[in-house]
């Protein structure tokens, strides 16, 4: 499962730069959301729950033939702490893993955060959000665990393909099978642990507010599932993403839709590909830093207001 932590050196500059730029406002938004959902001052203590996830990943669940799996935790956290808080917890875990264990790269932190702390958490929350108030709740919990892993994996594969890492149908097929098995396991473990947690103290579970619409929930879940399936399918095609972009008319084969605005092209005064990429990387980093500071300031201002 560690293969979902993308290291540095694999992703291309436009991909990691874009995802860093996306992760910052995403996490900033989660911080704001968590502040509303939790008692004032409680947010920092999410660190203890992060320690829990670390420890939980050491507890093995028997599967078959002596093989075992463990909890990844994104969906479980979103169902207990709420998705905003879960995003913060997982982001801190990813930061520490990349620093302490070099598990996942520093430049790839944005990508890993988007995949697991944002996409994984929210894909895990979605089915639970809609199904948690009825007799389909267990299905909602299972679907949450299942979707969180599969959506993270789909995003990772998508990023690798965009970075020019070649894959053919066999490889995508085999990894899809592995990911589906992991996702089923995560769904089952999430159901078992959440039921046990509820027996201890029902107050530890999030009760979603507002009117639940079961059909809307099923529709949303199904569409996420179809999107994931689409990503896996396109990944398996040679030049899948490039030809898709061309067909949609948003970009020519040379100018892929997903690239960062400055990263790949048209910085005429610096000849050569390396110059453009270096400049793009630096510009990306500067933008990210600026965003960090702005979001921080906004948060601080909001708090003092």
């Amino acid at each position: 499962m560690e293969c979902m932590h993308i290291p540095d050196g694999i992703l291309s500059v436009p991909v990691w730069a874009t995802l860093n730029a996306a992760a910052v406002p995403g996490v900033g938004w989660a911080v704001r959301r968590a502040r509303q959902g939790l008692a004032e001052g409680h947010v920092p203590l999410l660190g203890v729950m992060g320690a829990f996830v670390f420890a939980a990943q050491r507890m093995n669940f028997p599967v078959v033939f002596g093989a075992s799996g463990h909890l990844l935790g994104g969906a479980l956290l979103s169902m207990t702490l709420g998705p905003g808080a879960a995003t913060i917890v997982l982001t801190s875990i990813l930061i520490l893993q990349s620093l302490l264990f070099q598990d996942g790269g520093l430049l790839a932190l944005g990508a890993n955060t988007v995949n697991m702390a944002l996409i994984g958490v929210w894909a895990g929350w979605l089915p639970y959000r809609f199904l948690s108030n009825g007799n389909l709740r267990t299905l909602g919990v299972f679907a949450g665990g299942f979707l969180s892993v599969l959506a993270s994996a789909a995003a990772a594969i998508c990023e690798l393909r965009l970075s020019g890492v070649p894959m053919n149908a066999t490889i995508v097929g085999v990894s899809t099978a592995v990911f589906v098995a992991t996702a089923v396991l995560e769904g089952l473990i999430t159901v078992a642990v959440l039921q046990a947690v509820e027996r201890l103290n029902p107050g530890w579970l999030r009760k979603p507010q507002g009117l639940p619409s079961r059909s809307a929930g099923l529709l949303a879940t199904a569409s996420v599932l179809m999107m994931i399936g689409g990503v896996f399918y396109i990944s398996a095609l040679p030049d899948g993403f490039e030809s898709l972009a061309a067909r949609l008319g948003v970009a020519s084969r040379e100018q892929i839709l997903f690239a960062a605005p400055m990263a790949d092209y048209e910085v005429p005064f610096l000849a050569g590909e390396w110059g453009r990429k270096a400049l793009g990387g630096l510009a990306g980093l500067t933008i990210i830093y600026g965003l960090c500071l702005t979001v921080g300031r906004l948060l601080a201002r909001q708090r003092s207001a």
Binding site: V27, P44, L45, G47, V48, G50, F54, V89, V295, L299
Partner: peptide, 13 residues
């Protein structure tokens, strides 16, 4: 400039 909240979560983690 990393938000204090995130740094504190990291510290307590």
């Amino acid at each position: 400039g990393v938000p204090a909240v995130l740094v504190m979560v990291l510290q307590s983690l």
